[in-house]
């Protein structure tokens, strides 16, 4: 069990050494995943609310599709985005392949369905409770959707954290569309994969521990903000 201690020690040493390259990788991981979560939060919550409140033909099918899309394999999403953004693909002229922008697109496609499916459930439960009330006030459609999103915002924070967790942990898609280019598209997960390839397992695990600490920190922050706003606005 020596390797656990070695990696823990390595993680602490790395994190405290103030290595500029490590910080750049951490910063890029956060930048890519938080951007993807922000975009997916808007699209996902609106789509989730639309399916929760709306009554349209094929709604049940839409729910099943949304739920199934939570299980999209990252490597498949990565491959599809790669083929779209490749110079030989339909969006090739944008020159986005092997840039952080491409990684944001791939992560957005992975987490928007998760946020949509989970927020649909949360909002639908609230809709059952408040439907009559909202209807009696003459609120319907978009108004009702937005009211319910606001009303369930504290539960939706957990939904966003599920999306963020997926984004931060994902390696298959960003590896393909980002290319793991040193200093440009290398993020925590692809750096861990690279060090594993080099057989430097203690360093790989040390990086993994740092990634875990970051995710833990983000969740702690989200929890604190939530608690604070519940007390203030609850």
């Amino acid at each position: 069990m020596n390797w656990i201690g070695e990696s823990l020690h390595g993680a602490v040493a790395l994190a405290t050494a103030g290595d500029a390259r490590l910080w750049a990788i951490i910063f890029l991981s956060l930048q890519v995943s938080l951007t993807a979560v922000a975009l997916a939060a808007v699209a996902g919550c609106l789509a989730g609310a639309a399916v929760a409140v709306g009554r349209f033909p094929g709604r049940r099918l839409a729910i099943v599709l949304l739920n199934a899309a939570m299980g999209l394999p990252p490597v498949v999403v990565g491959l599809v985005v790669y083929l779209l953004l490749s110079r030989a693909g339909p969006l090739g002229s944008m020159g986005l392949l092997f840039t952080p922008g491409a990684m944001v697109i791939a992560q957005f496609l992975l987490i928007a369905p998760i946020i949509a499916a989970l927020s649909r459930q949360v909002i639908e439960d609230a809709w059952r409770e408040y439907e009559e009330q909202l209807r009696s006030l003459g609120v319907s459609g978009l108004g009702a959707a937005l009211t319910l999103i606001w009303d369930t915002r504290f539960s939706l924070v957990t939904v966003l954290l599920a999306g963020l967790g997926r984004a931060m942990a994902e390696v298959g898609a960003v590896m393909i569309v980002g290319g793991n280019i040193d200093g440009v598209t290398r993020v925590m997960t692809t750096a861990i994969a690279l060090e594993t390839s080099k057989g430097d397992l203690p360093l790989a695990l040390a990086l993994g521990l740092i990634l875990l600490a970051i995710v833990l920190g983000l969740n702690g922050l989200a929890y604190a903000v939530r608690e604070w706003s519940v007390r203030r606005y609850g």
Binding site: Q31, V32, T35, A38, L39, T99, P100
Partner: peptide, 12 residues
């Protein structure tokens, strides 16, 4: 903010 953030990522 998110869109601008994404745009600046592309033109990094």
């Amino acid at each position: 903010a998110a869109v601008l953030g994404a745009a600046s990522l592309g033109a990094a």
